[in-house]
Amino acid sequence: MLRIPLKSGKWFFAITFSAAGTVIMEYCAPVTLAEVCAALGAASGTVKVFAGGTDLLPRFVAGVNPPALLIDIKHVPETREIRRLAEGGFVIGSACSGGQISAHTELVRSWPGLTEAMDLIGSVQIQSRATLGGNLCNASPAADSVPALIASRARCRIAGSDGERELPVEDIIVSPGRTCLRQDEFIVSFFLPARNPRSADAYLRMTPRTEMDIAIASAAVNLTVDEQGVVNECHVVLGAVGPVPVYALPAARILLGSRLDEEVRQRFRRQISALCRPISDKRGSAEYRTDVTAVLADRAAMTAYNRALL
């Protein structure tokens, strides 16, 4: 049984028992970071941090084995804010929904690739609920926002019962479905660095349908060009072609110093395919993923490049 001091005295707590008298699931909705950490730290048994719930809920509501404790972090203000910092960077709360992110015009202007990646997740209904933090912590190799987050060089603010720490996004997912977060930790927010002039990003994914689908393969490109239109910074990240998103450093190096002319793009495509380590599954064959990722990365690079030139 959960026993935590209720510091704010405002938060919500509930338990469901079965007909036989056993606890089915406890739910709490703390309102401060400290309360979330205390709840996480005190929990025994399975505990899930809950924000949008679009991946979490279908797993236990209709099925079996709900977690012993569900901690709803949406009432903690730090998880819900989108803030532009004086130096030009952004802070995005981990429980910000896709809808909230798409509606933030400044953010969309600075990070078109990241925001369109988030926007591709599910329907309008899903967008109202699905969160940036949830998409990362679900730790799916096919998550749409994660390649774009990594390409943006985003960092995570992580809170735990021992205090806070900061990690780059690419360090979070360790294998499909698993993150490096300890049981008493959760992601509070993301920090996106300030943009240099002539910088832009782009994200593309392949799905059989136009909407309501999971990426067979995806690619995010974030780059900066100099006044001559030569790429001087570049980050390329591939999704659904490995157990975790692939930070494609050798491919990004090919674009550096170039204007993305035809010969460069051909080498870039070949390098992308060489970096893919996909599996064959119900959504696509390894061969297809390898081929199509090169196409997506190339197109995303061109889009980002053209955006950067604007």
């Binding site: 349908r209 909407e211 689908d213 999971i214």
Partner: peptide, 16 residues
């Protein structure tokens, strides 16, 4: 069955 749901059993959506 690997796809017993509307996510991976892909009936056309309006934008298709």
């Amino acid at each position: 069955l690997l796809n017993p749901g509307f996510l991976d059993y892909r009936v056309p959506v309006a934008s298709d």
